[in-house]
């Protein structure tokens, strides 16, 4: 006669196949349900735990939805002014070259107000990692047009859709910085499916590992959804992202070991 197994008998250390990383705090995240930020945070935290670099990592948070990231990661962190994270991280790394330093920035932060800081940190080849969350919108301020908003895409400041004559083209910052000799590793990822999450985690790990080489900057773009800003359900927003964002922002490696992918 089979033993009567209840849930309490199953939840045992020896049966554990997955648990929350110790580098994430117990603080409840403020992100909208379905948003990609939480997953991106978790992946960074898991990589830090797996590499055992909790005491060796300093993070820099942006202005935007991820402004409160320092509440969720159990590491030393600095909150930068809007767009200035790459400059802040430059100083941290120059003063503590043996630490792992990363910035976590949205599209408005990295590709609009912080364009100069981003390009120059990349061009100097600072040995830091930049994690760039691109959801094509200003989430925290309520869904305004971002530099990466697609043509025709509606936002609160492009209510009839982004018009190229009036508002210009969306900016591919990731492709742009890949051209600079200071970048060592440039890739575009997503976190909307289990397969993409696994790939994104590998890319994040690579960006941390690269800092040991001291050969230049690693930038990982994560194309993400903003279901609240896009005014869609989480599931619909991920579907919309794959159908509309990926054709313009195709996932995949752009630069590996200092060489543009697909070029000699």
């Amino acid at each position: 006669m089979a033993e009567n197994t209840g849930i309490k008998d199953v939840v045992r250390d020896e049966n554990l196949v997955y648990k929350k990383t110790s580098v994430l705090t117990d603080k409840v995240m403020h992100y909208c349900p379905g948003c990609g930020h939480g997953t991106a945070h978790r992946l960074i935290a898991e990589v830090i735990e797996e590499m055992e670099i909790q005491s060796g990592t300093i993070g820099v948070t942006p202005v935007g939805c991820a402004v409160l990231m320092y509440n969720y990661l159990d590491i030393d962190m600095q909150e930068a002014a809007h767009g200035r994270a790459p400059a802040v991280a430059t100083a941290i790394k120059r003063l503590m070259p043996d630490k792992y330093v990363f910035t976590y920035q949205g599209d408005g932060d990295l590709a609009a107000i912080g364009t100069a800081e981003t390009i120059h940190a990349c061009n100097r080849g600072e040995n830091i990692a930049i994690f760039f969350i691109n959801n094509g919108i200003y989430g925290m301020t309520g869904g305004q047009m971002a530099p990466t908003t697609l043509l025709g895409m509606k936002s609160s400041t492009s209510p009839y859709g982004r018009d190229v004559h009036m508002m210009g083209n969306p900016l591919k910052m990731t492709e742009l910085v890949a051209q600079l000799p200071g970048t060592w590793y440039v890739t575009r990822q997503a976190v909307h499916t289990p397969a993409s999450v696994r790939k994104a985690k590998k890319a994040i790990r690579q960006a941390f590992e690269n800092q040991k080489l001291k050969k230049g900057l690693s930038l990982v773009e994560i194309v993400s959804n903003c279901n609240s800003g896009w005014k869609m359900s989480p599931v619909d927003s991920n579907k919309w992202m794959a159908e509309n964002m990926f054709p313009f922002y195709p996932p995949g490696d752009i630069k590996l070991e200092g060489k543009l992918v697909g070029k000699e």
């Binding site: 930068a80 400059a87 802040v88 100083a91 941290i92 100069a116 120059h120």
Partner: peptide, 26 residues
């Protein structure tokens, strides 16, 4: 001592922020 010419005064003062936050004399 680290000496760096920044891309702007804005970047320079934010480098000061980053370094000062590490407890360094900047």
């Amino acid at each position: 001592m680290v000496v760096l010419q920044a891309e702007s005064e804005i970047a320079a003062i934010n480098m000061v922020y980053g370094g000062a936050a590490c407890g360094r004399k900047v």
